[in-house]
């Protein structure tokens, strides 16, 4: 039987040359590495989905708000719109209260209405004759 004490005692494992010169520096670099990176990773893991969710919400609602009025109107079902108008008492008084007409607005409105008339002198003569005939009756 082979005895352990017959074998010369020696450590057979050798580190590569220069290993122990470099190791303290490597360890020093690891322990002095800024910790912010490792601290922020767990925070970001939860914060990023929240930020992404909020960004998606902002984008969605801003997109809704900027959609052209005509497009929004086209999206409404005609039958639903008629039903809504039939069942809703529209208060004209409210709109009149909101709209304030001054004298310039009235004159401007008058000009715009008159400008839509396409009359020439013959029309005016005809109207004038009709007025005379009415007066003679």
């Amino acid at each position: 039987m082979k005895k352990l004490e017959d074998i010369p005692k020696k450590d057979p494992f050798k580190a590569p040359d220069g290993y122990f010169d470099q190791l303290p520096g490597i360890i020093q670099a690891r322990i002095t590495k800024p910790k912010s990176h490792t601290i922020w990773i767990p925070v970001l893991k939860f914060a990023l989905p929240v930020v992404a969710f909020i960004a998606a919400g902002v984008f969605w609602f801003s997109d809704q708000a900027t959609q052209p009025f005509e497009d929004q109107l086209a999206g409404i079902n005609t039958e639903e719109l008629i039903a809504y108008l039939d069942n809703t008492e529209f208060a004209w008084e409210d709109t009149e209260e909101i709209t304030e007409w001054n004298e310039d607005d009235v004159l401007d409105f008058e000009d715009r209405v008159y400008s839509t008339f396409t009359t020439d002198n013959s029309d005016l003569d005809l109207l004038e004759n009709e007025l005379i005939e009415l007066e003679n009756l």
């Binding site: 122990f20 190791l23 303290p24 360890i27």
Partner: peptide, 26 residues
């Protein structure tokens, strides 16, 4: 930092030797 560097230098060979005999690969 300086003190810890001295500690590593003082014990690195014994720690490495113990570890190496257990895990074999450098």
């Amino acid at each position: 930092n300086y003190g810890f560097n001295l500690l590593v230098r003082a014990y690195q060979q014994r720690v490495y030797g113990h570890v190496r005999k257990m895990v074999i690969d450098h």
